[in-house]
Design a protein around this nucleic acid. Structure first.
Lengths: 219, 219
DNA sequence: CCCGACGGTGCACACGTGTCAACCGATCTT
DNA sequence: AAGATCGGTTGACACGTGTGCACCGTCGGG
């Protein structure tokens, strides 16, 4: 099923090219297995079997399953960041920020369901190293969002801490939406997206009143 | 470490009592192991070893590891509901609903960190049956919250769907807070709680404006 | 052109796993 | 008091695991 060592298809490829090829095969195999199980329950042998490679060849690419996991984190957030970059740059995307964002998330889940599933699954999963890596990436994400939010009239006057509080809430909401979308049936997608939009709208409404309210928490 | 078969300490207990005792030991053992690994990576033998029992004795209590998992879900949400019941009933708890809720979550995480960790970890974890069970419980939770929210002046006029949208947002926010608290160092707790309070406050502010706004999503 | 590096293979080992079968002694039932 | 039941034991089995080792063919640089 998967590409074996010396298909005539890679007979012309250079060594480093075909190495990269089987490396990608390992990553793809891992992501496929991760759609059914969690990371610390899939074995090195399973991954190599799925990739069509002998177990020991694994070590030509990674020291460790954990190292593979970290690569998966990198790759998953790579595609996420790419999505964001596109979403920001594309002026054809009509509508306000909320609709743009929700549509971007939906589209991203369609394209890279396995990446988002991996993030959701391992975010609080059983492998400390992976949790840490994912949290770091998510922190970066929220940090970046907080900066972006500064361009909005009301928010720019907020304290950095409050801005971060807001961007954390927005990030959390969108990650939750993505996590639900990943496991949802196609006919449920519209409802989930709609709910996400309304939740973001609700928060947005709150923004306009922030600052005029009774600040119990920051005296 | 764990209770073995015939300690003189249970020589007076009835059969069903001591059976329940080792059953609890199995549950406790599983929860302990789950603080390091995810459910589908811990083995039946590990659990029995931790519980101080022979592997085959496991089957006197559960057909399957999966069945143990479902019991863990039940138990975890049991303690959560108990917390809620207490929180609702206790009039000594001063302050508004937000502060009461956040304090309740913090206290609950202190008392039952393993339960909350289990919920967070397996909510999107690798075992389908467990994901389903947790989602069902979380749905019930949000459903109940939606009903409770009806007593508030503004919200009672909302559509059921919007109420549910709100209760989902609140639930998600509190679960996320709990999940962070579980893994946080003690000195980070205050900041997480503060952020949670402010996030809930922000949403609350939005509530007052909902209905007057441009309803793009519900035409 | 040739030889070293490299990506791959197979085999073997020690070990952990889930579960079956037989058994054992204390507790419940009659 | 006798016997069934039940929670527990040990031992064994077949199998999957991670990884060390020796080997091999081909690509690539001197």
């Amino acid at each position: 099923m998967a590409a074996r060592h010396h298909d005539r298809t890679d007979s012309i490829r250079s060594r480093s090219e075909s190495k990269e090829l089987t490396r990608r095969a390992l990553v793809r195999a891992a992501l496929k297995l991760l759609s059914r199980n969690s990371f610390d329950s899939i074995s090195l042998r399973e991954v190599t079997r799925e990739a069509g490679i002998s177990p020991t060849a694994f070590y030509r690419h990674f020291d460790d399953m954990e190292e593979l996991g970290l690569v998966l984190v990198e790759e998953s957030f790579g595609s996420l960041r790419q999505m964001l970059r596109d979403s920001r740059a594309d002026p054809a995307m009509s509508g306000d920020a909320i609709n743009r964002s929700v549509e971007a998330v939906v589209a991203h889940v369609h394209r890279h369901a396995d990446h988002m599933r991996f993030i959701a699954r391992e975010r609080y999963g059983g492998v400390k190293q992976l949790r840490r890596a994912i949290r770091r990436e998510l922190d970066l994400f929220a940090e970046e969002l907080a900066i972006d939010l500064s361009i909005f009239p009301l928010i720019d006057a907020w304290s950095p801490d409050d801005r971060r509080m807001l961007s954390d809430l927005l990030t959390e909401t969108m990650v939750a939406m993505a996590a639900e979308l990943v496991e949802a049936r196609p006919d449920e997608e519209a409802a989930i997206a709609s709910r996400g939009r309304r939740q973001l709208t609700l928060v947005t409404l709150g923004i306009t009143l922030w600052g005029r309210h009774d600040r119990a928490d920051e005296p």
